[in-house]
Write a protein that binds this DNA or RNA. Structure first.
Length: 711
DNA sequence: GTTTACGCATCCCCG
DNA sequence: ATGCGTAAAC
């Protein structure tokens, strides 16, 4: 069976797929069939005789790689499944386990997640006596953020602080001391954080020629997805991996760069042709995902971006309804509007799986989650709290980490503090003792005040058993869980739920052959602790925009599109971050195939300040702003709901969905002083929200307002 | 001297 | 819901 490339791909895609050897940059707009192109290219390479295992596909998530490779396998044959695929971090992890000793990295290092790193920083902060309240020394998360950004952007801490947080300048000296302690601790305990993985991997490629050549021989073709989200080290690593042959194809879209907060540099796309002078540049501009009205809105959002690769998306799907903007009374009303419309869509020909609600921050969906639950609408939430961040998971993982890396101080601490009668002091002593004795965990049994405790005996037995277990890592996880279960029950009231998480951890471990692979994977790509609610039916998706990247749905709701929320209040005017906020909304908008809704509440209860006014996001202004508001011309419609609050159990007879019965919404009005405007929403019986070009959004009381209705 | 229990603040996006 | 600081209990 051979693939009919000409028939199944458009000319630009075909060019990208058929591109021979040498570097290529594919600038792929949202929904332009980027994944399809990569899938076909993998298939094409394999079909033309390239050994599958010598193709390297670097993606943003492991799932993305798996999905592409299984699609390629379905397209051509099972050989495609043996293509090497994964994230930069997993690549770096493998490389360092194998060759790290060349640059003095111990092969059994433990990978720190963000929380682990922050624990160490918190300890360092205390150790230096910087945690006094009146000192107002930066929090551990702020510190970690600064350290990480400095590494990712290859900047001195000094320059970074100067540039983006001058108010921290007075702490700079102490920040450096904390950082030094942090670095030393990692060295002593054989720990690598996320940044270290990339940095040391790069160092390995840079410094050790034979390793570089070995990898070049191993991987004859390199494909990189989401290139706009690579940081300088990743971009440089790509150069080394490409080697002399330079068979490297990168795919990206500068307009969808949304990870600069962790050091991504979308200009890597622009620099790529400079790094590889003979780069062939291919633009994918035809959009297959969205209808024209949605694409118009998205283009409008991004058109005000300060800097971008010029490309213009077009589609043939000229039909479809225009995006909708809802101005809701308050947060709950927003949830009601969204839930109503979701029910309406599901009663139509939409499946729950076709629908997503997207938002800026993971907690923005709490109220909606309650509303959906009340209505028995199932949903899956992505981008919330990670599996690994839950305390009970961390407890179990800490036990699992120790056999491979007994130097890991904080894992020891975590494990020991769980024991009855053991606090910070005794735990520290014990760790010291374990280190110095040279006999590992066995030293615990010999310690006075420790060895005789039943808890300690059980712990020693646990490590004894773990060292005996061969084969599937699931058995080791099971063993730890058996040990941990009494602690779990004692420690948490909601232990049944947490026990289920542990079950998940066990079945996750089953896929791996080595415990260390499992642990690395769980740290690098923590599985989502999915919130499956209510029964068998399909579930709609709730997701942060970041987690929604690369995905698509027929109907997409974006909630909390309000100033202070989106863009976030901490983002400075005219800053790089503001540009990123704009791109983020662009990413959200371009997830939609057929229907797109933006919403925000007008009032919010802020702790300490009471009710505060909330305004539509500035990014929405680029949608309905400009001279005379014309729904047809701008392809934007504003709508409202007359139902003010949701009944606890929505009556079916009431019927959900948009109803515009005797509604003023959408009608044009003339105001004596504000001029011509459009009714955006109705508040109760006697008030309306209207938008005027001069004035923006205004609330008017029908009884008094000097207005006339025009149409 | 240590551990533990309790109350209080806080929370954007993430490999 | 976790993470810290302080005060009571072992």
């Amino acid at each position: 069976m051979s693939i009919n490339y000409e028939k199944e791909l458009n000319p630009a895609q075909l060019e990208a797929v058929m591109h021979g050897n040498g570097p290529a940059l594919i600038v792929a707009g949202a929904g332009s069939g980027k994944t399809r192109t990569l899938v076909y290219r993998v298939a094409r390479l394999v079909e033309s005789g390239v050994e599958p295992s010598s193709i390297l596909l670097l993606t943003f998530t492991r799932r993305a790689a798996e999905e592409m490779l299984s699609r390629a396998a379905a397209l051509l044959d099972s050989r495609c499944a043996s293509v090497e695929g994964g994230t930069f971090h997993s690549m770096a992890n493998k490389g360092l386990r194998m060759y790290g000793s060349e640059i003095d990295i111990p092969p059994d290092f433990t990978i720190l997640d963000r929380a682990d790193s922050e624990d160490i920083i918190s300890w360092a902060r205390k150790d230096l006596g910087l945690n006094r309240r009146e000192l107002r020394f930066p929090k551990k998360s702020t510190l970690m953020g600064a350290f990480s950004q400095a590494v990712n952007r290859r900047e001195e801490l000094e320059a970074l602080v100067e540039r983006q947080s001058p108010h921290l300048k007075r702490f700079l000296g102490d920040m450096k001391r904390v950082r030094t302690l942090y670095e030393e601790h990692k060295k002593k305990n054989a720990l690598l954080d996320y940044d270290d993985l990339l940095e040391y991997f790069l160092e390995l490629l840079r410094r050790v020629e034979w390793v570089r050549l070995a990898l070049n021989t191993r991987y004859s073709h390199v494909l990189v997805d989401e290139f706009q989200d690579t940081n300088p080290s990743q971009s440089e690593a790509v150069m080394y991996l490409a080697g002399e042959a330079q068979n490297v194809v990168v795919v990206g879209d500068d307009s969808q760069s949304i990870y600069s907060f962790r050091g991504a540099r979308f200009k890597n796309i622009i620099d790529f042709p400079l790094r590889f002078p003979h780069t062939r540049i291919i633009k994918l501009e035809r959009n297959y995902r969205s209808t024209q009205p949605i694409l118009d809105a998205a283009n409008r959002i991004i058109s005000e971006a300060k800097e971008k690769y010029t490309k213009c998306l077009y589609t043939v799907r000229t039909d479809g309804s225009p995006p909708v903007i809802w101005s809701a009374e308050n947060e709950h009303h927003q949830s009601v509007l969204v839930a109503n419309e979701i029910e309406h869509l599901i009663e139509g020909d939409y499946h729950p799986e076709d629908i997503a609600v997207l938002f800026r921050g993971s907690h923005h969906s709490f109220d909606l989650e309650v509303e959906l639950t009340n209505r028995d609408l199932s949903f899956v939430k992505y981008g919330g709290i990670k599996f690994l961040e839950a305390a009970h998971i961390k407890d179990v993982v800490s036990h699992l980490r120790l056999p491979a890396n007994p130097l890991d101080f904080f894992s020891w601490q975590r494990v020991l503090l769980l024991l009855d009668g053991v606090g910070l002091k005794r735990a520290t002593q014990a760790i010291q003792c374990v280190r110095e004795s040279g006999m590992g965990y066995r030293a615990l049994a010999t310690m006075p005040k420790m060895g005789s405790r039943p808890g300690v005996k059980a712990l020693v037995q646990l490590f004894e058993d773990l060292s005996q277990i061969r084969g599937n890592p699931r058995q080791q996880v099971e063993r730890v869980c058996a040990y941990y279960n009494p602690i779990l029950i004692e420690k948490y009231d909601d232990h049944p739920k947490r026990a289920r998480h542990l079950e998940e951890l066990m079945s996750l471990a089953e896929r791996f052959t080595r415990l260390s692979d499992f642990l690395a994977e769980v740290t690098l790509e923590p599985p989502q602790s999915d919130a499956h609610l209510h029964g068998p039916g399909g579930a709609l998706t709730l997701s942060t925009i970041h987690s929604a990247k690369g995905l698509e749905w027929k109907a997409v709701f974006v909630i909390w599109v309000a100033e202070q929320w989106f863009p976030h209040s901490l983002v400075g005017e005219d800053s790089e971050e503001m540009e990123e906020e704009r791109r983020l909304l662009y990413v959200a908008a371009t997830r939609a195939e057929e229907r797109l809704y933006f919403s925000y509440p007008r009032i919010w209860y802020k702790h300490g300040e009471g009710l505060i006014d909330v305004h539509a996001s500035r990014f929405l202004r680029s949608l309905d702003g400009g001279a005379p508001y014309d729904c047809k011309r701008h392809g934007i419609v504003s709508a409202s709901k007359q139902r003010e609050s949701s009944p606890r159990h929505p009556a079916l007879s009431d019927g959900p969905g948009i109803r515009a019965t005797n509604s003023l919404t959408g009608k044009r009005i003339r105001h004596r002083t504000f001029g011509v405007g459009v009714v955006v929403a109705e508040q109760g019986e006697d008030k309306i929200m209207a938008h005027f070009d001069e004035k923006g959004l205004v609330t008017l009381k029908l009884a008094y307002a000097p207005i006339e209705i025009l149409d």
